[in-house]
Amino acid sequence: MLTKQPFPDSAAPGDAVLDPLQFREGMSRVAAAVHVVTTEGPGGRAGFTATAVTPVTDSPASLLVCVNTASRSAQALLKNGVFCVNALNAADEAVADAFAGRAALKGQDRFTIGRWETLRTGSPVLASGLVAFDCRLAEARIIATHHVIIGEIVGIRLGEKRPALVYQNRLYHAL
Rank of each mutant, 00 (worst) to 15 (best):
F48K: 04
G47N: 12
E40Y: 05
F48S: 13
L77I: 04
A76C: 13
S62W: 05
G81K: 03
L78K: 02
G41K: 05
V85H: 02
V53I: 13
M27C: 08
A31V: 12
V56Y: 00
L77E: 03
N68G: 04
A32V: 09
G26V: 10
P60G: 10
A46V: 07
L63H: 05
P42D: 14
A31C: 09
L77W: 00
L64N: 03
G43L: 13
K79Q: 15
A50L: 05
A50F: 03
A46Q: 06
R29G: 12
D58N: 09
S59N: 04
L64S: 09
E40S: 15
A52D: 11
A33K: 01
T54M: 14
R45P: 02
A32L: 06
V85N: 01
V36R: 11
E40L: 10
L78R: 01
L78W: 02
V65I: 15
C66G: 15
P42I: 15
V85I: 15
L63T: 00
Q75I: 05
C84Y: 10
T49G: 02
V82I: 06
R29D: 11
G41S: 13
G81T: 07
G44H: 08
V30Y: 14
R24Q: 13
S28V: 12
P60R: 06
A46H: 05
R29S: 14
A70Y: 01
S62C: 03
N68H: 12
L63S: 00
P60H: 10
S71E: 12
V34H: 00
M27Q: 10
S59D: 13
A32C: 13
T39R: 03
K79R: 15
T54P: 00
G47P: 11
R29E: 09
G41Y: 11
R45I: 11
G26W: 05
N68A: 10
N80R: 04
G81W: 08
L64G: 02
E40V: 07
C84H: 04
L63K: 00
V36G: 11
A31T: 13
A61G: 05
Q75K: 14
P55Y: 00
H35Q: 04
P42N: 14
M27E: 08
M27N: 04
V36M: 13
G47Y: 14
P55W: 00
S28E: 09
V37L: 08
E25G: 04
N80D: 15
G47L: 06
T39H: 14
G41N: 12
G41R: 11
S71N: 05
A61P: 09
K79Y: 10
K79N: 12
Q75P: 03
V67L: 09
G26Q: 08
P42T: 15
P60K: 06
C66E: 13
V56M: 00
C84N: 12
R24T: 07
A52H: 02
G47F: 11
T49L: 00
F83D: 07
S71M: 13
